[in-house]
């Protein structure tokens, strides 16, 4: 491997192509990145300076442009579309806040399922993000009983412990919401 590929500008560039092409299958994305790596290695001499690296990357095109060309070659793959931040916030808020209400008259379950449906129907996330988001949204179904069972084993389940179980159940949805929030924010034009 030549040092061109370890240059910080090149690494950032390739990481950005990888992100922009996230809707493509793993195989296709790997091929694309391998082609770009080979290109960069063949046009940049060993020890090229920052200006030369930047020039080579500029000639290659923006990561978004290249990803769009690769996505356009794939029938059936539609590019991700940004959605408004209000919409994202509502979806992810529902996902996180469902947990404390989970076993109160089933409200939490309904909210979590609605959040899962909103995630599934959104155009802003890749399939992988969607699967992750839906698992996180529905995770309280398992986490609350599990946490409550642990409290019972540890000596008793009072109102405080039950409340504790709900709080614990928020952790996974919160982690998922942070990740999905970041991918949605990256799609918005001002983040380009």
């Amino acid at each position: 491997m030549s040092d061109a590929l370890t240059h910080p500008l090149v690494r950032a560039y390739l990481a950005s192509v990888d992100r922009e092409a996230a809707v493509l299958s793993d195989d296709r994305r790997r091929d694309l990145l391998a082609d770009l790596r080979e290109h960069i290695e063949s046009v940049l001499p060993q020890g090229a300076d920052d200006a030369a690296v930047q020039q080579a990357l500029d000639q290659l095109g923006t990561p978004r442009e290249i990803a769009a060309a690769a996505i356009a070659e794939e029938p059936g793959v539609t590019p991700l579309q940004p959605q408004s931040s209000a919409r994202t916030t509502l979806t992810l808020g529902m996902m996180v806040l469902a947990a404390p209400f989970f076993e109160v008259l089933g409200i939490g379950l309904v909210v979590a399922v609605l959040a899962a449906v909103r995630i599934w129907r959104s155009t802003a996330w890749t399939r992988r993000d969607k699967h992750l988001g839906i698992l996180c949204a529905l995770s309280p179904l398992l986490v609350i009983p599990a946490a409550a069972a642990l409290f019972v084993l540890a000596g008793g389940l009072g109102p405080e412990e039950l409340f504790g179980s709900f709080l614990i159940a928020m952790v996974i949805p919160l982690a998922g919401a942070i990740r999905l929030g970041r991918s949605a924010a990256r799609l918005r034009p001002q983040a380009a």
Binding site: D31, D35, L36, E38, H39, L60, E65, I66, A70, E73
Partner: peptide
């Protein structure tokens, strides 16, 4: 090879594109 094709295309400005977009085409 890829860079060779890009150089040949660059000789004809009307066919020149952002270099990186040629690779998805080659892959197809």
């Amino acid at each position: 090879y890829g860079v060779e094709l890009l150089e040949a295309l660059a000789d004809t400005p009307v066919m020149a594109t952002s270099q990186g977009t040629l690779y998805p085409l080659l892959s197809r």
